[in-house]
Amino acid sequence: MKILKWALMGLMVVNSGCVTSVRASSREHLSAKNSEVVLQGTTDDAARRLTELFSKRGIQVTDRQVRRDGSTLYTFKGTRSTLTTVGPGPFGTTGTTNTVGSAFYALLIQQGETTKVALMGNPTVDNRNVCSDDAPAWVPSCSEDVYANPNWDGLDQITGKEEAETIRGLLVELDLTRGSGPGLMAARSESEANQPFEAPKPACIASELPEWKEASSVEKKQLLEKCRGPAADAP
């Protein structure tokens, strides 16, 4: 494995060995099941919707790959912050600037008239992915380990938590805008999409109520209205 060491607290930390391996992803804070959604329409419809939502968050689409199994993998990347660290160097004080961002992967699988979307995110440092131990097979392999000084102020920004929050927020927004149309949410997860539709049960059957036989036409109408609501609303 190729190892890339960044001197995030000055060049001397690499030579002294005072570094720690950084590994993180959104999966450490958000499970695979909670990182999925089923959208209406084709994979192109889903890709357009995801591109719109990510773009609102300052994250742009950077790559598209059609896989052998027919699925499509999209990559989205964005910058979150720029950190400058000042520390001792071999010839005096040294300043190091690093850019912290995020990379997101969206696997789109066509399923009839809907598209299943699986999401995962990794933090990035200087546009290079932080590797993780829990990446699914469809995420591009990570060949460069990132090392940082344990005291670097940027460590709390590359834990995978920010990526998990972005995915969670994106899915919440999709859920709030449910409707009928390409790219709109069909189900929160694949299991929800596969559940058969069940019509709501009425609160009661008016003709089976004891008072039905002797009720007037007006009273029967009132009983019908009473039983028309869902069972949960029944007194």
Rank of each mutant, 00 (worst) to 15 (best):
A137E: 09
A135I: 04
R168M: 06
E28L: 11
V22G: 02
L39E: 05
V38L: 09
T72V: 14
L223Q: 11
A47R: 14
G41M: 02
D134V: 04
E28Q: 11
L73R: 12
D175R: 14
A193D: 12
V172A: 15
N151R: 15
G154P: 11
V61D: 07
G10P: 08
K201E: 14
G154T: 09
K221W: 08
N34H: 12
T20M: 14
E211I: 01
G10I: 03
R80L: 12
I205M: 05
L176F: 05
S55W: 10
V117W: 06
D69N: 15
Q65G: 03
R48H: 11
E165C: 00
E162F: 07
T84P: 00
G10N: 10
K77T: 11
L176S: 11
M9K: 14
L108W: 07
R27M: 02
P235I: 06
A32Q: 14
R57T: 01
R80M: 10
V100F: 15
W138F: 13
L108K: 07
D133H: 08
A193V: 03
E162H: 04
G78H: 03
T75Q: 14
W138C: 03
N15D: 10
V22I: 15
I205T: 14
L73A: 06
T115N: 00
M185C: 03
C204Q: 07
E28C: 00
T72Q: 13
V13E: 15
E192F: 07
V19P: 00
N34C: 01
M12D: 09
A137G: 07
L224C: 01
D126E: 06
R57D: 06
R168H: 10
N127D: 15
R64K: 14
P140K: 04
D145S: 11
P230A: 09
E113V: 04
S35Q: 05
K77C: 05
M1Q: 12
E225G: 01
S189W: 08
G169S: 10
R80K: 12
G58C: 05
A135S: 13
E214K: 14
L11V: 05
P200F: 14
A46L: 06
V146Q: 13
G92E: 04
V125S: 04
Y147F: 13
R128T: 12
A24M: 01
T75L: 09
A186Q: 07
A7M: 04
P235Y: 05
S141K: 15
L174K: 00
E165M: 08
G181I: 04
R68V: 01
Y105I: 03
G95D: 06
H29L: 03
L73P: 03
I109C: 00
G89F: 03
S141R: 15
E165S: 06
W6D: 08
I205L: 08
W138V: 02
A232P: 00
A232F: 07
E219T: 04
M120K: 09
G101N: 10
L8D: 11
L171N: 01
A186K: 10
V117Q: 03
I59C: 06
P230N: 09
V13W: 05
D44C: 02
T75N: 06
D45T: 05
R80N: 09
G89C: 03
T62G: 00
T62R: 14
